[in-house]
């Protein structure tokens, strides 16, 4: 089990690193898809099958495709001859390293306090459906409204303006 975890963690981290460092934007989209797949497999490893498959459907199925479409629609961002990192990249890198240092320090220092349930929880999809329709029905409705609003909003924002000849 531990070997599988380390392989998946390496896949996720390598995908993320490639996504933020590669020059070609299409390669970055491919690398971030690998990172999303690694995270979905980590969810499956954590006995959260529903969340894992939701992650595969939403991220690999929809968000990755959306990113590729956006890259193709913004043509000159495919490959750039000039610098791909902003002028303040050193400050950004320092902030990210500092955030990781603080988070890692907090996790390692609280190793005795964090819970460790040994037995895997058994959750059927039926239980999830029951919970979504009873206890979490208000958040579900709000998410439905949010998704409708986001869909309409994305279409309105990306639509050609009136009088725009192109």
């Amino acid at each position: 089990m531990t070997i599988v975890f380390w392989i998946l963690a390496a896949l996720t981290v390598a995908g993320g690193l490639a996504a933020v460092t590669l020059r070609n934007t299409v390669h970055c989209a491919l690398a971030v898809t690998a990172a999303f797949a690694g995270l979905a497999l980590l969810f499956l490893q954590l006995d959260a099958q529903f969340a894992g498959f939701a992650q595969i459907l939403v991220y690999i199925g929809a968000v990755a495709i959306l990113v590729v479409f956006a890259i193709l629609l913004t043509r000159e961002s495919e490959t750039t001859e000039h610098a791909v990192f902003s002028r303040t990249w050193l400050a950004g890198l320092c902030i990210a390293a500092g955030v990781f240092a603080v988070l890692g320090w907090a996790v390692l220092r609280s190793a005795n306090a964090i819970p460790q349930q040994a037995t895997a929880p058994v959750v059927a999809v039926k239980d999830i459906g029951n919970a979504l329709m009873s206890r979490y029905v208000l958040p579900l409705e709000i998410v439905a409204l949010l998704l409708t609003a986001a869909m309409v909003g994305a279409v309105v924002v990306a639509m050609h303006e009136k009088g725009d000849t192109k």
């Binding site: 933020v20 961002s77 791909v84 902003s86 890198l93 990210a96």
Partner: peptide, 8 residues
């Protein structure tokens, strides 16, 4: 924080 491209 470091990339120039908005999509990235």
């Amino acid at each position: 924080l470091t990339r120039r491209n908005a999509i990235l």
